[in-house]
Design a protein around this nucleic acid. Sequence first.
DNA 1: TCGCAAATAGGAATTATTCCTATTATGAGA
DNA 2: TCTCATAATAGGAATAATTCCTATTTGCGA
Lengths: 151, 151
Amino acid sequence: MTSAQVGQRVAGFIAACRRQGVKATRQRMEILRELAATGEHPDAETVFSRVRRRLPSISLDTVYRTLHMLQEKGVIARVPSMQDRARFDANMDRHHHFVCTVCGRISDFYSAALDSFAPPPAVRALGAVDSVHIELRGRCRKCRSELKKNK
Amino acid sequence: MTSAQVGQRVAGFIAACRRQGVKATRQRMEILRELAATGEHPDAETVFSRVRRRLPSISLDTVYRTLHMLQEKGVIARVPSMQDRARFDANMDRHHHFVCTVCGRISDFYSAALDSFAPPPAVRALGAVDSVHIELRGRCRKCRSELKKNK
DNA sequence: TCGCAAATAGGAATTATTCCTATTATGAGA
DNA sequence: TCTCATAATAGGAATAATTCCTATTTGCGA
């Protein structure tokens, strides 16, 4: 996401806060900015250490609470993970994930073919589908390269 | 999974343990049996409380360690989750998940169309794909039914 | 049957996350 | 611009999920 786009996300968030009678604090803006600027789907501890560079007195509890508030308001999304830390995603466009099974990196990718995928009719027996999520698992370029070196 | 199939899973596990010089303890068998018998992708605490009915002195640490050992050996798989507890799956056949966004229930379903899905070529730029996982999110039948009642 | 080392149980410790409350800061209204 | 109410925060504490430690038990090969 470009700097301009990040700025727009934050500005839009501020406007939405005003509409909803929710305070647009500096902490909230910086947390969203950090999440919007990174494509790494970070956990709370990572967001905390990065935002602390600009807001040295921010608390970890504020980061946790704010991430959950942003998720609740649909501003960001939580990413399902096999790790023991919650991961978050500011990209709310329709997209998919590539997850490295070695280092845990999560990368976005787009695919019109995947977007247009329709769940098999038999799934209706399980319930009502609201969304489809595709996760590709494998080894990212970096880990592939390093694994080759080590063999 | 039928009782016969569960029994076969456990017997196969015992044989594999013997081959690998790893003890086939009663605890390990019961933990695998519980996971193989349930289609619920439970967390460690759930497995612990159920296995304890048959093995009253089992410890939670043993459940955690055994789930991780089974995962490491490829006997079971960890399920990516947005919850704060690790979830596990004994179904090692090619399948997909329907996840209820209300109650968290994870249900298996099968789809030859999904199985034959090929990742878009552009993904190669991200890394080497080993597997494709599709997760449908929505409201399970039970939660749909209850939500209708409450409205 | 025996013996060894892997595995376990029970309790403690660690880590990720949430709770508590005194203080601060946002922003509506004057 | 100022005031003030209250939402939000910081710092510290508590909780919950998971891992660690070690004395004891048990699986299984000989």
